[in-house]
Structures are given as structure tokens and as C-alpha cells.
Amino acid sequence: MNTKNIMDAKGIERALTRIAHEIIEKNKGAEGMVILGIPTRGAYIAKRLKDILKSIEGVDLPVGAVDATLYRDDIGMKQEQPILKETDIPVSIDNRKIIIVDDVLFTGRTIRAAMNVIMDFGRPSSIQLAVLIDRGHKELPIRPDYIGKNVPTSMQEEVRVHLQEIDGIDEVVVEAE
């Protein structure tokens, strides 16, 4: 296997800081936002973003997790059922700006499912999408509002985000057969 390191700890930190600034800039502040990460790694990135936003803007935004597993469009098509993860939406999301956070954007299907989950919880005023890596190959008309890094990949490659919280290291690698 061929592994290529495309981002280190510093790189991740810089990317998230830039995304935080872009969020503030685009929304003219951070008021009224709810940050929802997609488990597993999206949820950790969401927490980090919340911390960065707090240090920049001084607001303590609610952060939660939205697991899209039950809304996936491939239930019953794979041999095995996907493992359920936590959904934790801590506040009412009606008329709030939602930032969905994920580690890697690939086909866009997970984001579609996550949006459907969110819509079943209430009526947000808007939904925005932040991803650490956009690797291309989208199958749905979904475009992130904030991107840490664009990484063109082939279908044979895997993009893996490792985070200190669960992997013991901050890095992004591309694996090829």
C-alpha cells in the first residue's frame, strides 16, 4: 500500500482556523449558529471549530452530532447493517443557522442524509457545510461552503483523516492500493 501524507497537525489547525474566519465573515458574526458534526470524526472537528470560534468571537456556540445512518439510501443494499452512532442535537434548531461539519466530502450522500435528519428536527433558517477535505466524485448536487483542502483523488484511493482525540495523531493521508 502506498500512503501519502497530505496534511499534518499544523495544516489541520490552520485549515480549521481559516474555515472559522470564513464562517464569521460570511455570516457577519457567529450569533445564532449551531454546529453539528457527523460522527465519528466530523463530530470532533465540530468541537474544535466551536473552540476556535469561541476564541475568535467570544461566543459559546451549541455543538452536537448528527448521525445520518438511519437516513442512508443504501440500507439493505450492503451485506451488513451499518453501525449506529450518536445523534445529539442539544438545542432547538428552528430559525438557527446550522453548520454541518464532516471530515471528508466524497459522494455527498451522507450530507444529503444528514440534512434530512436535521429537517426532521426542525426548520433551520439555513444549512451550511464545512469539510476538512473535499476529495471530489460527488454524486449529488452538494457543494461545501467551507473547505479545508481540495484533494483530487482517484476512485481507487482512500482519504483518511486521523485526529488526536481517537487516533492519537493529527494528520490526513491518502492511501492507494
Partner: peptide
Amino acid sequence: LSTAQSFKEVSEREIKKVPTL
């Protein structure tokens, strides 16, 4: 049991329904 634990939250949502099945 761990799957059931995850499903408990669904029953506490306002829309207590997921499209899974």
C-alpha cells in the same frame, strides 16, 4: 443493546420517525 441505546434518542425526537426501513 448498544444499537438499542442509540435508538432511544429517536423516540425522544419531535418527529419520532426515521426513514430507515
